[in-house]
Design a protein around this nucleic acid. Sequence first.
DNA 1: TAAAGCTGTTACATGGGTGTCACAAAAGCA
DNA 2: TGCTTTTGTGACACCCATGTAACAGCTTTA
Lengths: 228, 228
Amino acid sequence: MSARPTVLLVEDEPAQREVLAYNLEAEGFDVVRACDGEEALLCVKEGLPDIIVLDWMMPGVSGIEVCRRLKSRPETRLIPVIMLSARSEEVDKVRGLETGADDYIVKPYSVAEFMARVRKELRRTRPSTVGEVLTYEDIELNSETHRVTRAGAELKLGPTEFRLLATFLEKPGRVFSRDQLLDRVWGRDIYVDTRTVDVHIGRLRKALTQFGGSDPLRTVRGAGYALG
Amino acid sequence: MSARPTVLLVEDEPAQREVLAYNLEAEGFDVVRACDGEEALLCVKEGLPDIIVLDWMMPGVSGIEVCRRLKSRPETRLIPVIMLSARSEEVDKVRGLETGADDYIVKPYSVAEFMARVRKELRRTRPSTVGEVLTYEDIELNSETHRVTRAGAELKLGPTEFRLLATFLEKPGRVFSRDQLLDRVWGRDIYVDTRTVDVHIGRLRKALTQFGGSDPLRTVRGAGYALG
DNA sequence: TAAAGCTGTTACATGGGTGTCACAAAAGCA
DNA sequence: TGCTTTTGTGACACCCATGTAACAGCTTTA
């Protein structure tokens, strides 16, 4: 599956948030940041993350409430949730787990401990994540060596096409809207014309079929693109 | 590699120190003693030990400071460090781990436990750190003699190029970003311009091809560099 | 102490990747 | 069928990432 698991990091305090984000990104995770409960729920709706790190105390919708809602919906129930809290009382811990959180970290904690917990949860729920090779049919993308092959032949594609293909390979079959692709491939704060996506899809198609083979990309009119 | 691994034992209290030294020597280790942080750093500079046992509380440069310095330098980063401390508070433990210590033993401990931890760290790190010869195709790097050859001919390269090549040789094919290379080759807390990596890549390329042969380094546009 | 070697920075050339546009083609819709 | 909307794609100008020479500061060596 995904070589870059997506972590939804929900923490209202900027300093804390960025420290964790820095370490997660350094380890190769895609980090989606959220500052409060409402934003968190929105992000989950946008694109399902592979794991959620949730601060307990937040303005607005609290972490505990977010967790409760996620765990009560079938489509989000299986996403592991790690709760962060400043309170160490056993009572809180119990309540945290009762809402369905999969793990619970009490501040202060070391970054090493935090990373270990995240990896543990991901190992538990996505054993296939450990491999860094994404495949779909005869297409292989190795994110470690940055090489892409189709039916054994190496394909030459630019950085943008590479990330684009990687995005599709993470969730084969899923339809990505142009805006979602811009977010994931180009970056959240980049302003680029939507049609640029079309052009790069074209380039990716050309690259994927340069040695023959059918076009694996599907255009979903009015919605976006999908792999397979 | 030496049949007798060298242990650098840093402990200011003589009784403690001699008990540990006695047991280490009985098990066939070469023991180098140091009474404080400054002496410890000097010993490390003299000749790299295979493992370091470091007392937390010491006059002058503290154990935690010694550890931090060792872990921030590429040439000493891989030496395992075991911290000894009388404090068992969680806070201290966290701080100890954040400095990069590989293990942490809280006093009082049994000698058997101590020896077990030392053996464990050596088992973990020795195969890859001590006297290993790294190869890729016709390139050979001997970390013990600090010599590099290609197709049998000895290459002359500077310290930075040496560590750079060693980094690539540890994972041939893997793409390292410039930031990752700065972390691993220069050191985590060194601030150096990213482009410096490019220059040293160029120097390494020139060194590797000075007697002919193709350039084994691959530039991955927008991502970094890789060997092969 | 001088010489040699190494390092990090800067500046400049260059080539390839990028985004945008315009128009063609296709797909929906009435 | 005719019209509108959406998508495919060739062309092109731009500019950013990379390669590299030059240089000054620093450390090591003779």
